[in-house]
Nucleic acid binder design. Sequence first.
DNA 1: GTCTATAACGAGATAGAC
DNA 2: GTCTATCTCGTTATAGAC
Lengths: 228, 228
Amino acid sequence: MSTARGARERARIEVTAAIKDEARRQLAAEGAAKLSLRAVARELGMVSSALYRYFPSRDDLLTSLIIDAYDSVGEAAEAAHAAAADAGPVQLWTNVCEAVREWALAHPHEYALIYGSPVPGYKAPDTTVRAASRIGLVLIGIVRDARLGPGLTLPALPAELRPEAERMAADFASDLPPDVAPALVAAWAQLFGLIGFELFGQFNRVVEDRATFFRNAAGQLARGVGLT
Amino acid sequence: MSTARGARERARIEVTAAIKDEARRQLAAEGAAKLSLRAVARELGMVSSALYRYFPSRDDLLTSLIIDAYDSVGEAAEAAHAAAADAGPVQLWTNVCEAVREWALAHPHEYALIYGSPVPGYKAPDTTVRAASRIGLVLIGIVRDARLGPGLTLPALPAELRPEAERMAADFASDLPPDVAPALVAAWAQLFGLIGFELFGQFNRVVEDRATFFRNAAGQLARGVGLT
DNA sequence: GTCTATAACGAGATAGAC
DNA sequence: GTCTATCTCGTTATAGAC
């Protein structure tokens, strides 16, 4: 019985993976808005009602794809961080940014799913939050570790921003001085401005040598949060 | 005869506007991927084939909406620039950024149309380029004008970026020193990272006082391109 | 010339009976 | 789980009103 259950478990995992693979294929072809459980089922030679044994709704399938995408790019960022742990803070930051960019170039449709326009009618549940915050945590970690070293130099925080900065630090960067929190959040958002513009075509006729351009922009972002 | 022609012209303009208004309504409700000529026609009490007198295809209607959106946000940026022509460069830059953000908050679906995920199967024609570049031209203008005043201070341009910087300056910022071109393009992209993250929900649980946060981040961008 | 309406095509989605 | 009848879609051809 336990072997039978093991086999069943394995089959379930395999079918779940096949469903997600096919759904990702459709994501690439038609976009998230047109993702349809029926079409996925048809392509897999299943009947649509059978899919509901694996995902209770289209939105749950979408949520699963979103979490997978966040985890995938988050892992890429963490791996880049781990691989260069002995580099200087600016180099470390730049490497992580480049890893995110490379993941995005390799997975444009999954990037669009998580960082592009919201899917009409879909509301992301709280279960996506943890995976979504992995990249931010890597960036926070770089600044935290750097602070133990040469120390940070930042422009003075305007008074109007101090309450928000302190709330940010208390909420998700308690081991960082409040002064750096807004700059860090801004750099995090700006990083995805650079990547999104390249991926979505805004850099056509504007940026040619995109790898070089991006590396330098990422280095500027690092300096903007006080890294040296 | 000329009055008859005038009346026809007027009617044509009115119907064209009604089609675009209804299309924008559908954009908000269902997303660009599901924009349907038939649904637009139905809602207007027309027959779908009649729409082809106004737009030769669904993609042409989309293109028209895209150009309108770029022009709308571009005008907002130009108006903000004109309204504060006597302010300092950083203030000017910040005002323009805030105008773009406010346009985006007021027109989230049109923002998603032009700066969000590409519409599957749609390829933007060259006719969108001019409208799309209006904001960039405003930002270039601010830096150009500031240079006549107090002068720019920028970190040295790395050697690897010099060829790209010179190509950029030659292509679309011929009245600017090449050193500033990459920083300006990066700031332009980063601006939309800030706006997109706020609009698409990435700032949920992260940034609370978004207006203050944005104003300060925009000011940092201004300093990043050498404005003082 | 300018417009709208009818009808149809081929492709795809969908709901429900079985 | 299967099948069918009925929807949707973009697009085109055609005919007729103004």
